[in-house]
Amino acid sequence: MKKITFIITILVGQSLFSQNTDILNVVTTPDGFYSKPGRVHKEDRKIDGSPYINGDKFEKVTIKDYSKNVQDLRYNAYQDEMEFKMGEELYNANKTEGLKIHFPALKKTYESLTYSYEGKTKTGYLVILVDNPKFSLYKREKMELMGGTKSNNGFTKDANDYYEKDKDLYLIAKDKKFFKFPKNSADAAAIFSVDKKDLDNFVKSNKINFNKESDMIKLVEFINK
């Protein structure tokens, strides 16, 4: 079994803790792995709403080929981080390239990836919708922090900053290259390198909506056959 470098397994009486203002260092035996999860920055102002796309609750997770004794996690879609609690402190888990984190209760799997899109390279978590060596389909979930407004009179209160869900971004992955999900059959034929006539027939017969997630999945699965 692989040694866990992603998050911390707590073995009572076998952990050594040392910390500064930003980092908690943990050495755990007998596995001997060493991990440096970053402590979550706490906002010093009131913000309305929540940055957690799936709710504030920490959920059980499973990670293939890794120990089952891992912390419950939750996804912070504003910070693009997986969070866990140790005692009363909140931490971000280490990002490990290619690690797939499955939330059984949510029926959702996130993958930690470094990916490039529109000239920008980012390391973060994407939801796996189709996982295939030919073409994979991912969804990027994101929360934005919007600015509140100041009252211009003495009768109304200032409005706090607030979290607002951004539109989901759907990405096609092929050989570690990422493309935005196509808008129509012509774009799809170019991205997937397939015959447009065959693709048109499939789209029409299945009434594919290029903006509907379930239809996106259906289309990619068809291409992969």
Rank of each mutant, 00 (worst) to 15 (best):
F155I: 12
D72H: 12
K36F: 09
D168F: 06
K2M: 13
N20A: 10
D48M: 10
S193V: 10
D80L: 05
A189Y: 00
T156Q: 13
E213V: 06
L99F: 02
K165D: 06
G87P: 05
M216D: 04
F33N: 15
V194L: 01
K218N: 10
E118M: 13
K120I: 11
L24M: 11
K2G: 10
L24N: 04
V40Y: 06
N92W: 10
V26M: 04
T109S: 00
E97G: 08
M143V: 00
K218H: 09
K157M: 15
I63D: 03
Y162P: 05
R45Q: 13
E144N: 12
T29I: 12
G32S: 07
I8G: 11
T9Q: 14
V27C: 12
D44V: 12
L24T: 06
K36G: 11
L145S: 08
K142H: 02
K46G: 07
N184W: 01
N152Q: 12
K107E: 09
Y125E: 02
Y125V: 01
K42I: 15
N54T: 06
L129G: 04
K2R: 14
R45D: 10
D22R: 15
Y52S: 02
F202S: 02
S116T: 10
M143K: 07
D22T: 15
E83P: 08
K68C: 14
D72W: 08
E111T: 05
F33W: 14
E88W: 14
Y162F: 07
N76E: 03
D31Y: 09
M86K: 13
I217K: 03
A77H: 03
I191C: 05
Y138R: 02
Y66D: 08
N25D: 14
D80M: 05
N69F: 12
S193F: 10
D22E: 15
A105K: 12
T121G: 07
Y34A: 12
V26H: 00
F6S: 08
K139M: 01
F202M: 07
P133H: 05
V12D: 15
D175S: 11
F155R: 13
Y138K: 03
N152I: 10
D161K: 07
V12N: 14
S214C: 10
S67W: 08
E111A: 08
M216H: 05
A77E: 04
D131R: 04
Y91N: 00
Y66T: 08
Y66H: 08
